[in-house]
């Protein structure tokens, strides 16, 4: 690692003020620290968000949406997001217990790893990402692998999830990293069904609109029968070909529909 300083502010305002120049936010560090070890980043200052009480915890807002603080760990979401079981379940399978005790939803979303789990939930549930300066709809947030709508220094302070009538996340793990090789979040909402897919595409998380249409008409796995996803643009690597990933998306979508609660 290159040398840097660490600041530990206690308010969002102080954190935002500290995030200037070559400074970078530090969430749980579960992605950033391994990156720093490889010397792939050289911030002069890390601003830890872990001490900001207003960014932590899970609660239900006045509008019934589930609000998760941007610095809330995966373990906390798994334990406290009971009113949105699909989300709690998803959080409980991110990485391993020690990773879940440190890694945060804000860090995961800001990083937008194409194989990460939370982006599927956020896009699938149609959540809103709240930052220190604005609110961003999920559909406008993800911008391809490792890129988001966030500006330099912008902090994810909260994520607001409309609680779906029924939802489920199915993760097929990449055997080595145990990230999602394919992860599918299916949510049945008043406005229709949303299907968000992570892990599979070179463009990062995406919505599978054909499946959404079919499932909106008939929320049953059989509704997917005639569909197939184009392998073009799917990730191909030593863990699976694009065709295999495209196939898995359909299998996992079907399983998510069956398991949706």
């Amino acid at each position: 690692m290159y040398a840097f300083e660490i600041e530990r502010p206690e308010t969002v305002a102080d954190a935002a003020a500290a995030l200037t120049g070559e400074a970078q936010a530090l969430g749980g560090g579960q992605t950033l620290i391994p990156t720093l070890k490889q010397r792939l980043a050289s911030p002069e200052k890390l601003v830890s968000l872990a001490g900001i009480a207003e960014m932590k915890g899970v609660c239900t807002g006045d509008d019934g949406r589930l609000c998760v603080g941007g610095a809330t760990t995966h373990a906390t979401v798994a334990a406290e997001a009971g009113s949105f079981p699909a989300l709690a379940e998803l959080a409980s399978h991110i990485g391993d217990p020690a990773v879940r005790n440190r890694g945060t939803i804000g860090g995961s979303l800001a990083n937008n790893d194409p194989a990460a789990c939370y982006p599927a939930a956020v896009l699938g549930a149609g959540a809103t990402i709240v930052t220190n300066t604005r609110e961003i709809a999920a559909d406008d947030f993800f911008d391809g692998m490792f890129t988001t709508a966030l500006n330099e220094g912008e902090i994810i302070t909260e994520v607001k999830f409309p609680v779906a009538q029924k939802a489920n996340y199915q993760k097929f793990v990449q055997p080595a990293s145990r990230f999602a090789m394919v992860g599918v979040f299916v949510a049945q909402t008043a406005e229709g069904v949303r299907v968000a897919v992570t892990g599979a595409s070179e463009g990062g998380v995406f919505r599978w609109s054909e499946a959404e249409a079919a499932l909106s008409a008939n929320f049953d796995a059989s509704a997917l029968d005639g569909l197939s996803l184009d392998a073009d643009g799917m990730i191909g690597d030593l863990h699976g070909s694009p065709a295999y990933r495209a196939h898995l998306v359909k299998v996992m979508t079907g399983r998510a529909v069956k398991a949706a609660a």
Binding site: I6, R8, G29, P34, L46, A50, A75, A98, V99, R102
Partner: peptide, 29 residues
């Protein structure tokens, strides 16, 4: 390891299991 995966470094911080290779000492102040 250097990718936070092997768990040889697991300790407890404030009662929670964490990977001591993926946390700065300053964060444990």
């Amino acid at each position: 390891c250097d990718t936070s995966q092997c768990g040889a470094c697991v300790v407890h911080v404030d009662g929670l299991a964490v990977k001591a290779c993926t946390m700065f000492a300053a964060e444990a102040d």
